[in-house]
Design a protein around this nucleic acid. Structure first.
Length: 520
RNA sequence: GGCCCCUUCGUCUAGCGGUUAGGACACCGCCCUUUCACGGCGGCAGCACGGGUUCGAGUCCCGUAGGGGUCACCA
């Protein structure tokens, strides 16, 4: 089984495209076949390399490796359509020679006029082939008038095209409803549909798995393939990924609209907050949840993104939700792909991410999180030698509060020097200012810290409880004040773990500073 | 507008003639708890509509409605 994904170099990798690529990749991997990346740049003139790089980078990040294509090449290269022009021209010439295509000398204006007339009269436009040249004599005659030609398919005008589609079953289209599509421009360059069919054949693609917007294009491709004597590939037209809370196709262009959706906006804000706090420079044009770069930059796990995308339009049994690479390769099948579009749900994606993050081993989490701290200047680069232990403790204590790696910045207060700690206003008022005894309690408690041996969560807890018993107070009367004093926040992970990680001295420093602040 | 595709909780989906229509996310309660999360338990909520076929239809057929895709010398 040989499958392909054929991106055009646009400078970004769309999340819907990833889903299509994923299905292709899975098919190739499970069958032991090849996954081919072919670059559709027949229309692009400049900076292909530059516009392609983010796409390849996306694939690398997701771990979807390609067997043939840019960088790896392979036996059916080149893999850039811009370099395969001669193949297409030869195919066009063959189609003409065998009467499946013709040179057409009409002008765009003439055709447009005919189209309009037809529309006015309420009938569907059928080109009368007035300027069709089927032999050189006719061609010479038209050329004498100073006309130039394109090459058009001589499409059948009766009968029907029956497409066997792996997800849709049989799709029937009347040939008569098809136009004589152009396959070669006046300048000799060839168009996508010809190129695509020629390449799929030349590259021995066995399964054409693509988004459903290509379904209406399929009859003309079938015609080309059959006229050229090719064996047809298996077709599978996937439903597209729809916009959040909507049914229209997800598009990069409609970002402003999606931002009106609260869940989408929340994901976007989440990402922006991370970008801002880390001081990372992000590309505004691509930093949004429609494009994969976003997920890499804020610290999603590729496995989580893939797992979510897999279930967007495919299911195993309606129960199983968790798929790692191995199991998705093993269990994926086109027969269980849905027909209806599935809308992109930011919350569910985040839920998958949270899930995958929970089961990630500590070491890997530490590694993921470190670059964000360094970008934010909270940890030096290279990091101090005790960083693994310290970060390990924090990551462990934070647990599932770190949903994406960038969330580590929620705990920036663990890294800040005491004098840079900022107190949340509301929390400071509620927990330190308002309860009259808070300051005094903290002061007394701080003194007992000397006796906590060792300075670890368990013994700290014992110490604090003893303190409460001695003072005849409930733990709630001091612990909130203690949290605000040492972290500046109303909420965070376990208090005792927090204190342990900060260390005795730092805790005392922070308490002193909070008390000073309270005086002022 | 022509052609084509699609239609089960708000969302992702299971279901392939007989089910109390199942699961997940989200949401709402309760429990756990030093906060915030996590977790546990429970709840809300769906077969677009109308005709057939059948003893019996979410499931099969035909319409209707709605949604969407596509109609380039773009890919």
């Amino acid at each position: 089984m040989r499958t392909r994904f054929a991106p055009s170099p646009t400078g970004y990798l769309h999340i819907g495209g990833v889903r299509t690529a994923l299905f292709n990749w899975l098919l190739a991997r499970q069958s032991g076949g090849q996954f081919v990346l072919r670059i559709d740049d027949t229309d692009q003139q400049r900076n292909v390399a530059e516009a392609l790089e983010p796409i390849l980078e996306g694939f690398r990040w997701l771990g979807m490796d390609w067997d043939e294509g840019p960088g790896v090449e392979g036996p059916y290269g080149p893999y850039y359509q811009s370099q395969r022009g001669e193949l297409y021209k030869a195919a066009a010439a063959k189609l003409i020679a065998e009467g499946h295509a013709y040179r057409d000398y009409s002008t765009t204006e003439e055709l447009q006029q005919q189209r309009q007339e037809a529309e006015k009269a309420g009938r569907t436009f059928v080109y009368d082939r007035r300027w069709m040249a089927e032999d050189d004599a006719a061609a010479a005659r038209f050329e004498a008038e100073g006309r130039t030609h394109v090459v058009r398919l001589k499409m059948p005008r009766e009968g029907e095209c029956v497409i066997q589609d792996a997800v849709r079953g049989e799709v029937r289209v009347q040939w008569a409803s098809e136009q004589d599509h152009v396959i070669q421009r006046a300048d000799g360059s060839c168009l996508y549909h010809l190129a695509s069919v020629v390449d799929d054949h030349a590259m021995q693609i066995t399964h054409v798995v693509r988004a459903e917007e290509h379904l209406p294009n399929t009859p003309r491709q079938v015609f080309i393939a059959q006229s050229l004597g090719y064996e047809l590939p298996e077709y599978a037209h996937l439903p597209y990924v729809a916009e959040p809370a909507g049914t229209a196709k997800l598009s990069k262009r409609k970002l402003a609209k999606y931002l009106k959706n609260p869940e989408f906006a929340q994901l976007m804000k989440h990402g922006q907050a991370i970008a801002e706090r880390s001081g990372m420079t992000v590309d505004e044009a691509t930093f949004n949840p429609v494009i994969v770069d976003f997920y890499r930059e804020v610290g999603f796990l590729p496995d989580a993104v893939l797992n979510y995308l897999l279930l967007l339009g495919w299911s195993l049994d309606g129960e199983t939700e968790h798929f790692d690479r191995e199991s998705m390769i093993k269990l994926f099948s086109l027969t269980r792909v849905n027909k209806a579009p599935a809308s992109f749900d930011p919350q569910k994606l985040l839920a998958f991410q949270a899930n995958w993050m929970q089961s990630l081993e500590r070491k890997r989490k530490v590694a993921m999180v470190l670059p964000y701290l360094q970008a934010a200047d909270l940890v030096s680069d290279p990091p101090p030698c005790d960083i693994a232990d310290r970060l390990g403790g924090i990551v462990e204590a934070a647990g599932d509060r770190i949903k994406v790696a960038g969330d580590i910045l929620d705990f920036d207060y663990m890294f800040l020097p005491a004098d840079q700690l900022e107190y949340e206003d509301k929390a400071f008022q509620k927990r330190l200012v308002k309860p009259a005894e808070a300051g005094e309690l903290l002061q007394k408690y701080s003194q007992t810290l000397e006796d906590v041996q060792p300075f670890e969560a368990d013994s700290i807890e014992v110490g604090l409880k003893q303190f409460c018993a001695d003072q005849d107070i409930k733990i709630g009367q001091i612990i909130h004040a203690l949290r605000v004093a040492t972290t500046g926040r109303a909420a965070g992970f376990g208090m005792f773990e927090t204190l342990q990680i900060l260390g005795r001295e730092e805790v005392q420093t922070r308490i002193d500073r909070a008390l000073a602040q309270l005086e002022a």
